[in-house]
Simulated assay, not measured.
Amino acid sequence: MPVGDIDIERRLQQVPDTALIQLVYVSNATLKTRLNSAISTNIEKQAKSYNKQHGITGVLCYGNGQFLQCIEGSKLEIVALVQKIFADKRHNDFRIPLVQRIDKRMFSDWRMRLLFLERWLWSLATKEQATSLSSYLPFTPHNWSAERTRKFLQSIRVFATQPYANTASVSYSAFGNMCRHIIRQHQAFLLTQSILMLLTISACIFFWL
């Protein structure tokens, strides 16, 4: 199990197997995963049956190519699930910023809630209620401290409607999704090159006139 900002092994050893705990992990989606527009929905469907059978609740967040998942349940069940999650080849670079014993669940719904944190796919209703998320976007949970992670969880637990993307109503191809990530990461470089190209063309035209 990877070590994050806290000594995970030491903390878990002090907790009884049947105790209720909350664990948060973050990870990066692989390139293949990022090209799959329905990845979060697929993961949610696969987790639904397993989590209900094992008494696990929580929330799965995805955005900017990164996952953040908060899972709650008995220590024994959570540790078993985490080992299963970390063996999933759809994501990598795992880190656990937060794990703690709790008296009460923060996410009590038996469904694993899904939050798609890409503002461009949100409905107007979601945008209106999600102003508290502005400071967490773009979504980069890999860089967050344990305290920032706690504050984020407090922010999302109160949503009346979940800020997720309904991929059935949003049409974009895998190629388009890939281009969106490339352009966002290199937009400054592309803009500079475009300007230089225009200047070069203008200079050539002026020289031949």
Rank of each mutant, 00 (worst) to 15 (best):
P2N: 07
V3Q: 14
V3D: 05
G4Q: 03
G4F: 09
D7R: 08
D7H: 07
D7F: 06
R10I: 09
R11N: 13
D17T: 06
T18E: 13
A19T: 08
L20H: 15
L20E: 07
L20C: 08
I21E: 03
I21N: 03
Q22F: 03
V24T: 14
Y25R: 09
Y25L: 13
V26I: 09
V26F: 08
V26A: 12
N28T: 07
K32L: 13
K32G: 05
T33F: 02
R34T: 08
L35K: 14
L35N: 12
S40H: 09
I43L: 14
A47Y: 08
N51P: 04
K52N: 12
Q53K: 15
G55P: 11
T57K: 11
T57A: 12
G58N: 02
Y62D: 01
Y62I: 11
Y62M: 12
G63K: 05
G63C: 03
L68P: 05
Q69D: 08
Q69T: 05
I71T: 12
E72Y: 07
S74N: 08
K75W: 06
E77L: 01
I78P: 10
A80D: 13
V82R: 09
Q83P: 00
K84L: 15
K84C: 04
I85A: 02
D88R: 10
R90N: 13
R90D: 14
F94S: 11
I96Q: 09
P97W: 04
L98E: 03
L98G: 11
Q100S: 09
R101G: 02
D103N: 14
M106P: 02
F107D: 05
D109F: 04
D109P: 02
W110L: 02
R111I: 05
R111L: 09
R111Y: 06
M112K: 01
M112S: 02
R113F: 00
R113C: 00
R113T: 00
L114S: 13
L117V: 00
E118R: 06
E118H: 04
R119K: 15
R119C: 01
R119V: 05
L121R: 07
L121F: 10
L124E: 15
T126Q: 15
K127I: 01
E128K: 07
L133F: 01
L133V: 00
L137P: 00
P138K: 05
H142R: 15
H142P: 02
N143Q: 11
S145Q: 12
R148H: 09
R150I: 08
R150C: 06
R150N: 10
S155K: 07
R157F: 03
F159G: 00
P163D: 00
A165H: 10
A165V: 04
N166L: 12
T167G: 01
A168L: 14
V170I: 14
S171K: 09
S171F: 06
A174H: 01
A174T: 04
F175Y: 08
N177G: 06
N177P: 00
M178Y: 14
R180G: 02
R180N: 05
I182G: 01
I183R: 08
I183N: 06
R184I: 11
Q185N: 13
H186A: 04
H186N: 15
H186V: 02
F189Q: 06
L190N: 01
L191W: 03
T192L: 14
S202W: 14
A203S: 11
C204E: 03
F206R: 15
F207R: 11
